[in-house]
Design a protein around this nucleic acid. Structure first.
Lengths: 206, 206
DNA sequence: GGTTGAATGTGACTTTATCACTGAAGTCGC
DNA sequence: GCGACTTCAGTGATAAAGTCACATTCAACC
């Protein structure tokens, strides 16, 4: 059963009609939801799992822009859906995800007939814009060592972080060598223990 | 008379009603349209002039996020209007600007009753999101000297660029000293001629 | 057990950021 | 017209981050 808070804002008739025309889809880890240059087929409402959205610049470097998880809306798709432009970023499933795909026609109808749906869409847009503004500030002004430590702390809820230095570099929008060196420095200070594809936080609990 | 393409998408009745309740306002250069922490009073539709939107990070550094000019919609205001959150950025008038301020109630009504209005709003949102994604990439990966040259070229349509190094640093999200040094280097290579608050492009026409 | 490919380590060097100043150019009051 | 003041610009020293080139290590798979 499709559980997404934006669907709760619909009245019964509209919700039933929506669910009739929308498809619930499953995406295994590693699957590409969409990639740069593609055109949008429908609006994904994320029911569960985790998807990262990243873009690759002209330089060939990539950076993770944001993540989507349960109850999120794929904001990028809205713009592509309504204006017909192609995606500029790429979405990669990290944890097996489930999403309802709302076809264009249904989306238009929902926007037309449900104030709650509109609010949900606008809220999602606003949040994304905020996220990106904060990211700009972060990338432009914050020190890489702090950003790295913060990222690790945010990920180390329980157990070691399983990630390669290269992937971590994409998370932060920097080079692999920079990540390697900063991590080695953290290891020297006994903040982390490093092994291949794996970072264990030891002293970094603050 | 208020000319904005999104108003053209409205039928006569709706447009008349909107213009009755909306106020056309004038903003002189230097005026702050809104600043971080403030709450949104209405949605500005920009009729003319130029407004820059910039944010200041925790570090105290600022960076210009994007600009609005004729026929633009203040995307940031939409999110603040609908969710009640405060602005996170600041808008400063660069060239005397004129805007129609759409009050919240009218905005809701337009979203409800006009598909064209909705499309315009969504288009604006999508474009802004794109702008910010490109900015992230630019800040994260492109070289400062190239970005500076590009910025200057984009501004030097006719005549010299009137700007201080400090302001230019905010445009690019870097430090004033960095801008000064890069400009001096350009001057050594006879690409520009520098004077106080003014940059003349000489060899930089490419 | 040896080969292979991915992941990591590191030196050398360039670019960018930061700090701490100095000097130069405008502005204002008289 | 002349100081006093303020804003703007220049620069050396040093630290942080990015780039390039290559060495090493690890894990997986014949």
């Amino acid at each position: 059963m499709a559980r997404h808070s934006i669907l709760d804002s619909l009245d019964d008739t509209l919700r039933r009609e929506t669910l009739e025309k929308a498809r619930v889809m499953q995406f295994p880890p590693g699957q590409i939801l969409f990639s740069a240059g593609q055109h949008c087929q429908g609006l994904p409402l994320v029911l569960g799992g985790r998807v990262k959205v990243q873009m690759t610049g002209v330089s060939g470097h990539s950076i993770v822009l944001y993540r989507m998880d349960a109850d999120d809306i794929c904001t990028l798709s809205i713009g592509c859906l309504m204006t017909g432009r192609a995606y500029r970023a790429e979405a990669v499933v990290e944890e097996a995800a489930e999403a309802v795909m709302i076809p264009r026609g249904v989306f238009d109808r929902l926007m037309d007939q449900s104030a709650g749906f509109r609010l949900g869409i606008m809220e999602s847009y606003g949040r994304r814009l905020d996220d990106l503004m904060l990211l700009v500030e972060e990338v432009a002004f914050r020190r890489m060592d702090k950003r790295l430590e913060e990222w690790l702390l945010g990920r180390a809820k329980r157990g070691p972080v399983v990630i390669t230095h290269q992937e971590l570099a994409v998370e932060l929008g920097t080079a692999r060598e920079v990540v390697s060196r900063l991590l080695k420095e953290l290891e020297r200070r006994d903040m982390v223990r490093l092994s291949r594809g794996r970072i264990e936080l030891t002293g970094l609990i603050a």
